[in-house]
Structures are given as C-alpha cells and as structure tokens.
C-alpha cells in the first residue's frame, strides 16, 4: 500500500494436506513500527511466521520484503538460511532455542557468523591469525558486549545459556536475533512465561529496538498488556483468516475480534457494547 511498508504479505495460503492453516492472508508491516499478529490458539500465527522466515514454503501467495533503498526480495523464493543472511529477517522461537551448552557471549558470536565468516576469509585467513580477522573478532565481541549490557546480562556473559533463568533466556534470544543486524525482527510470543516485571522490561527493550536500531518488529503475542501497549498496528487472525487489521484502539473494540476470543452464542455475534 504505502511506500513505507517493510513487509507485504499478499494472498498467502498454507495447506498441510487437506488442512488449511492460513487462507488467503494479506497484510503489511510498516518500517520502524511494531506490528502484532494476534489470534486465538491454532489461528495460524506461527504458520505465518514460519512462512515468512522460510521454515515453510507457502502453498500460494507472495511475501515481499522491501529494503530502505527500495530494492526488494520475495521471501517465498528464498530458502531457510538465506532469508536471514540475504533478506535480513531474524526470528525467535515460541519455545526458546538458544545453544544451551554455549555461553551467552558465544550465542551472540554465533549470530554474527556470516560477517565473521567473511572477515576470516572463509576460515583460511582466520587460521593464520591475520590482523584483519583479529580486528573483526574484536568488533564482534564488542557488539555482543553492548547487547549483553543492553539486556542486563553483562555479568553473566561467560555463563552457559542453558543455566540462565527463563526471562534472561528470552531476552538473550532477542539479543541474539538482533546480532544478525536484521531489518525485520520476528518474535514468536516473546512475553510467554514472563512475570509482570519482566514483561514490562521486555516492552522497554522492544520499544528501544524499534527506536534506536533500524529494525521493524513483527510479533506474535497472547499477552494483551504487551500487545496493546507497544504495538503500532495489529493484525488479528482466526482459523487462518484475517478478521481485523488496524490500530490497537480499533482492534480492542472490534466486535469480530471479541467474538473470536470469547466465542459467540449460537453463531450470533456479540454486540460490542455488551462486552466492553
């Protein structure tokens, strides 16, 4: 629609055999904005995420990521690791997927793999320990250190990621995704399992990412305090179909959304005033 869209999903469908997980979905996410994808369990949110980040190949439709200079990539044509490497789309997972046996610092170093790989001359120069490689490694450590500082884990940098408390692991996974310097950051339920204080800290972190880095955020979330507080735009899915799309305030009062979350009696839509 507008020229400021970073992500445009058009007529996206994903079928697993006879099951239609996502049906003809179209929405956009704006640059340097936080877009939330919400919906009841099984609405197809994570499927949409997996299509965007290349873990699934969509049955139909197009997913276009536009760079700031106007160039674009069709994500449905790239396969898994290239989406992160070339299109600069990073993601986190619903059930945290850190490298538990590696330290927090190492986790962030692995995230800078492609940059470091080039700097190490695809291992050959690095094996000889050339100064250019050493400098690149120092930069990478510095970037990791600044992210650890940002998420408040600097003092636990040398601890195994698997030993960190749950909330810290969530933040570390976001920091790890950010270390790939993404244009679009996809977060799958970042607030799941966090307490009120941790989830407030998460809000702050996400707003900071939006404002301080050149990164747009697409997130799936069930925690409405997070969604309503930080989202600039909300897309609501139900049974794989988009049922609403708009600003948080409009979504909150949308009768279709309320019906999807609370259910309806005998298929009748609940009158909006009756609930809110």
């Amino acid at each position: 629609m507008s020229g400021n869209d970073i992500l445009a999903v058009e007529h996206l469908s994903m079928r697993f055999g006879g099951i239609v997980a996502v049906n003809d979905l179209s929405f956009t996410a704006q640059r340097n904005r936080i877009t939330a994808l919400i919906g009841p369990n099984g609405a197809g949110k994570t499927t949409v995420f997996n299509c965007i980040t290349g873990f699934y190949k969509p049955t139909e439709g197009s997913i276009r990521l536009t760079r700031e200079d106007g160039g674009f990539r069709q994500l449905e044509r790239l396969n898994d690791f290239r989406i992160s490497k070339l299109a600069k789309v990073a993601r986190t997972f619903q059930n945290i997927r850190l490298f538990p046996g590696m330290t927090a610092l190492e986790n962030l170093m692995v995230a800078q793999h492609n940059v470091l790989m080039r700097a190490s001359g695809f291992t050959l120069l690095g094996l000889l320990g050339l100064p250019t490689w050493r400098a690149a490694e120092r930069d990478a450590i510095e970037r990791a250190r600044s992210w650890l500082d940002r998420i408040g884990l600097l003092d636990r940098a040398d601890d195994a990621a698997g030993n960190l408390p749950y909330g810290d692991q969530r933040r570390l996974e976001i920091a790890r995704a950010m270390c790939t310097e993404p244009a679009l950051l996809c977060l799958d339920e970042p607030a799941a399992g966090l307490n009120a204080r941790e989830s407030a800290a998460l809000n702050e972190l996400l707003l900071a990412i939006r404002d301080d880095y050149d990164t747009s955020i697409l997130l799936i979330e069930h925690d409405m305090s997070v969604v309503m507080e930080i989202s600039d735009h909300i897309v609501v899915l139900d049974y794989g179909v988009k049922i609403a799309d708009g600003a948080p305030r409009a979504i909150r009062d949308d009768p279709k959304v309320i019906a999807a979350y609370l259910g309806t009696g005998d298929g009748e839509e609940i009158v909006a005033e009756g609930v809110s």
């Binding site: 873990f55 690791f81 997927r97 490298f99 793999h113």
Partner: peptide
C-alpha cells in the same frame, strides 16, 4: 566462526538456520 557454527549445529540446528 566455522568451529562455532559446528558447535551451534550440534546444539540446535533449527536455531542455526534462523541465524543465517
């Protein structure tokens, strides 16, 4: 980086793919 990628692969292949 290649060695860290090996170890990351051992730890979690899916996460490796997500990191490019």
């Amino acid at each position: 980086p290649i060695g860290r990628a090996w170890e990351a692969l051992r730890e979690d292949e899916v996460a490796c793919r997500a990191l490019g």
